[in-house]
């Protein structure tokens, strides 16, 4: 860790001004990821702007059955909120699949969006890494890449986004509320994170000085047919090798609306809205599920150590859609895959 100045923001405006004023400034919410990265000498903010006092903890009802989740609402608060459990059980389940109870008690909604990759090389400052040090190279390509991306990677970076919550938010079509020097704006969750391309140092599309203030969810028809299926190196407290958030609106055995987002496989929660649209009107059956999986993974490419993720993701997508269709979502306490 390097010495830094510390200030407390009392208003969102304060925070935005402080953030915009200093390119070395970073916002501190829980610190679950930022403090970790600072200790590993990966992040070196020169100024910390503590936003914990901002009034962003609330989970509010929106007209039309939606919810607005403040950026500082803890993962636990969201996962166990009765309205979230009733209206967005997929989100609740995804959150409970991640981290541990004590990390979820601390970690915030906004912080979860901004958490950085768990790539071994990103985390080890002595190795080349384009995300940490642009232009230095990607050590994971040709290296130890069991946990890396099979979709949307570039020759500059094959890191994955580690969140579970974001996968569900992407599937649910959440909106991210952002406050910045130029005022407020909304951004679709699917546009919040980005693919690495030639700029893997950028995880998301936030402009300098912008901060996340809330997540908005619209009313939906996915409370019955959904699941979050997570596969990992042990049965709890581990990042996903592959995860699937699936939600289906089914009428008379046919898919009315379909959402599938993948975690652990790309630089962002992976969702293909075009592919989803293609399967509307199809029967909610095994052949369709296999078709969806094939379509989503058509461009998948392994890196050697993670080749197994392609067939694993394919099977996981089919299984998740089966769970969702049958209305038997994966219970994160139950370790048998349902």
């Amino acid at each position: 860790m390097r010495p830094f100045s510390y200030t407390r923001a009392e208003t969102v405006q304060d925070a935005v001004i402080a953030l915009a004023a200093d390119p070395g400034a970073q916002l501190l919410a829980s610190g679950t990821n930022l403090v970790d990265l600072m200790k590993y000498d990966v992040a070196h903010p020169t100024a910390i702007v503590d936003i914990n006092r901002l009034p962003l903890k609330e989970i509010e009802d929106l007209p039309g059955g939606g919810l607005r989740i403040g950026a500082l609402a803890s993962n636990s608060a969201v996962a166990y909120d009765r309205r979230v459990q009733e209206r967005y059980p997929l989100l609740s389940s995804a959150i409970l699949a991640g981290a541990s109870p004590q990390l979820r008690n601390a970690a915030t909604t906004g912080g979860n969006l901004l958490q950085r990759t768990r790539c071994f090389y990103f985390y080890d400052p002595s190795t080349p890494c384009n995300k940490r040090e642009p232009g230095s190279g990607c050590s994971a390509i040709g290296g130890t890449n069991r946990i890396h991306a099979i979709l949307g990677a570039s020759d500059k970076c094959i890191a994955t986004h580690p969140s579970d919550m974001c996968v569900a938010l992407a599937a649910l079509g959440a909106t991210v509320e952002i406050e910045g020097p130029d005022g407020r704006r909304d951004l679709a969750m699917t546009d919040f994170h980005r693919l690495p391309g030639d700029q893997p140092e950028r995880d998301n599309t936030l402009a300098p000085g912008e901060m996340v203030t809330a997540i908005r969810l619209e009313g939906n028809h996915f409370a019955r047919h959904h699941t979050y299926l997570k596969l990992r190196g042990r049965l709890s407290y581990a990042f996903a090798l592959v995860s699937v958030a699936a939600a289906i609106d089914i009428a008379d055995g046919e898919i009315v609306d379909l959402r599938v987002a993948l975690g652990g496989v790309a630089h962002k929660p992976w969702r293909d809205t075009l592919a989803e649209a293609e399967f509307a009107g199809q029967p909610a059956d095994e052949a369709t599920f296999r078709g969806i999986a094939g379509r989503l993974l058509a461009a998948a490419k392994g890196q050697g150590g993670n080749d197994f993720k392609i067939p694993l993701a394919e099977k996981a997508i089919v299984r998740a859609l089966r769970q969702a269709a049958s209305g038997t979502p994966q219970d994160q306490v139950v370790k048998a895959v349902q």
Partner: peptide, 15 residues
């Protein structure tokens, strides 16, 4: 490369 106990997995309670 997995020189930490998030990525060097040992059994957790759920296992």
């Amino acid at each position: 490369m997995n020189h930490n106990i998030a990525e060097y997995h040992m059994p957790a309670h759920a296992d």
